[in-house]
Computed example of a mutant assay.
Amino acid sequence: MRELLRELVLADAPPGRENEVREIVIRELEPLVDELHVDTLGNVIGTRTGRTEKTIMLIAHQDEDWALLLTYISNEGYLRFNRLIGHRWNILGQRITIHGQQGKTPGVVGLSAPHIIPLNEYQQGYEPDFDKMFIDCGAQSAEEARAMGLEIGQYVTAEKHLQELTNERLLGNCFDDRVGLVAMIETFRRIRSETLPMRVVGVASVQEELGTRGAGPAAFGVEPDFVIALDVSPTGDHPNIKAGLVPARLGDGPVLLKADQFHVTSPLMNSWIITVAEQHGLSLQEVALRAPIHFGTDAAAVEVVKSGSKATSLLVPTRYFHTTNELIQYSDLEATVHLLVECIRSLDQLGE
């Protein structure tokens, strides 16, 4: 599971260009399901048959949570961009990868040395507007940049990394939502030889970070009765977070999301998951997020497709997501998988 997480973290998958991650998901999921296909948008959909036609869908998204889009090439070879997704305060000085016509091109989001920033701006807290930010890829002219295969409209992602810290904590990129993909795939791996009470479908969705665009079309084809979205949860266990605003913590196990900005999750699903956790002595954090927190998952988009479904979200607590340096505790990911597996084994307990 660790090696799969590492491989997924080091792959690039900006929203709408998830092919690197998609290839890994297909390779890992296909041997574990009875049928697998990729829809027109790029959602990967794997199905295990069950004793009934009732369907539960596990969904995690392929795309990552920090990406830019090239918008202009200057005569001097510098590149301007728009932010697709990610924390605006985590762009300056970042080492990046441009996905060009000739493959991947490294570069950096330029940041002036403090010595040459006007003193009054520096003392006030220098923060340039987006229209002043630029990428330096080494090109010395627009012609040279284009000869390198760079064009307007190409994706830019952060340079990838994954490091092990103390206390089983991992520092890396885009745990949002590589941890959800790992949890989904590992769950299918652990139940592959078991007879299932109902159909279990795993979906690796696309473009979640652009407004859950892939989840709806996937659900339209699957028509699930029940849904668990697998994603990350913000935590409140680090400095500068108002007490009580985000009760989730690293190391306390998966987070059952009961409400967010877009969705009040299914009481039936939540009660079932809580019961399974209690039966097996598993840790579970119950969280309802409120304003000013802006957060949501694929669950809200899936729940209202066709005649609807009962949906909830099970999340891995994660610090600093939507930046280029996110932090998780590996035991939380393991605990999430353990709970998911027991939930699948307890589908007979899930009522109407």
Score class of each variant (00 low, 15 high):
71 T>E: 07
296 G>V: 02
46 G>H: 05
308 G>D: 11
111 L>N: 05
329 Q>F: 00
179 V>P: 04
222 V>G: 02
24 I>F: 09
49 T>A: 08
134 F>N: 12
101 Q>V: 05
95 R>T: 13
54 K>C: 00
348 D>S: 15
109 V>S: 00
57 M>D: 02
199 R>Y: 03
67 A>F: 09
324 T>K: 10
207 Q>P: 08
333 L>T: 00
143 E>Q: 15
38 V>P: 04
197 P>A: 15
38 V>R: 07
111 L>S: 14
240 N>E: 15
81 F>H: 05
301 A>T: 03
297 T>I: 04
267 P>A: 04
268 L>W: 00
146 R>G: 04
225 D>M: 02
132 K>T: 08
273 I>F: 03
177 D>P: 12
27 R>E: 15
53 E>W: 00
51 R>K: 15
335 A>I: 02
104 K>T: 01
178 R>K: 13
154 Q>H: 14
341 V>P: 00
224 P>E: 01
336 T>R: 02
47 T>V: 15
103 G>E: 05
217 P>K: 02
137 C>Q: 00
194 E>S: 15
318 T>D: 01
126 Y>L: 02
251 G>C: 04
41 L>E: 08
295 F>G: 08
289 L>G: 01
53 E>Q: 12
223 E>M: 08
154 Q>V: 12
125 G>S: 08
196 L>M: 13
334 E>L: 14
206 V>I: 12
158 A>I: 13
174 C>T: 14
325 N>T: 11
204 A>T: 10
12 D>R: 11
213 R>A: 10
133 M>N: 01
155 Y>S: 14
222 V>F: 04
251 G>D: 00
299 A>L: 03
347 L>M: 12
90 N>C: 08
208 E>C: 07
225 D>S: 09
149 G>N: 08
175 F>S: 10
259 A>L: 03
352 E>K: 15
181 L>N: 12
133 M>V: 06
295 F>W: 15
346 S>M: 10
171 L>S: 15
36 L>H: 05
307 S>G: 12
323 T>W: 05
116 I>G: 07
234 P>D: 02
129 D>F: 02
148 M>N: 01
268 L>N: 06
